[in-house]
Amino acid sequence: MTSPTPPEARAPQPLLAVQGLTTEFRSDEGSVRAVDSVSFTLERGEMLGIVGESGSGKSATSLTIMGLLPPRGHVVAGSVALRGTELLTLPEAERRRVRGRRIAMIFQDPMTALNPYLRVGEQLVEGPLLHLGVSEREAERRAVALLDRVRIPDAQARLRSYPHELSGGMRQRVMIAMALLCDPELLIADEPTTALDVTVQAQILELLAELQREKNLAILLITHDLGVVATTCERVLVMYAGRVVELAPARELFARPLHPYTAALMKSLPSLDAAPAGRLEAIPGLPPQLDRGPFTACSFAPRCAHVHDACKVADPPLTEAGSGRLRRCVLPLSRP
């Protein structure tokens, strides 16, 4: 790597520091603010969950970090630093050396994420050949070892398979192996289990957790499924309408949500512990149109069960809520 890394001894830099990240998309009706002042940090060996419904800005956040926003999107403000190196202003050529090498990403649909015309092996060796300067044989050897590790049976033979010959769970394992072949420090997993059935989901999540421990990997797990983050993540970031509404350690978040949106999300989840008591609660209404502000009210106010006058006159700031928690709500801490 030629990118300058400041001496870590002097000021320990977090692995990933996202600060006030704001991303907008141009549309025919003007700009849409998909990510609004999002901040968080992530350390090696940590798994952070980002939860929110469709359109809450989860995926836009991850694509901004990777620097692969579609042409309509652009970063308006904020910073993304990897061990102190600002990524947003890095020239594209150096950016490419970060992508796949230091930050890898897997996403939702393993059916479409593999090139149907290339053998699995040809796709797996691409990363090592691009980044590690190893021979094709060495790259292949590593690929087989990692396929083995993600529990793909008969790994050597699978190199010759085409994606359509593998099941969904297998393909997601191949994607995970592909992402980890260059030993990245950070893995962004964007809805990695959404397209899979429940038993396979559990296996993949377990695999991710194992790999995280083994390789001291930082994982950013993006999902709309609170159940997924509950079992795997240490900390959870809840997003609504492009903004962070709550950040808390997973256990505490589930024990006592401090934002009405988080609380409502939990009530909409089926539980195995409690006997099914009638219908699950849905959150009324739809997420708001994303606009650019200035906000004159809480963006969740129209759907909030606890809304009162204060919510409609000013946009609540993100405030400390004790024990490393943050939330964006004006209600007393005991209320939601």
Binding site: R96, V98, R99, A104, T112, L114, P116, Y117
Partner: peptide, 28 residues
């Protein structure tokens, strides 16, 4: 727009490589 193109770019592949290796085989 297909995800494997995004996946290739996420691996750090440049435009030329994406076009020649991932897109052209799909149009052959």
């Amino acid at each position: 727009e297909r995800e494997f193109v995004l996946a290739a770019r996420l691996l750090g592949a440049g435009d030329f490589r994406v076009i020649v290796r991932h897109i052209v085989p799909n149009v052959l």
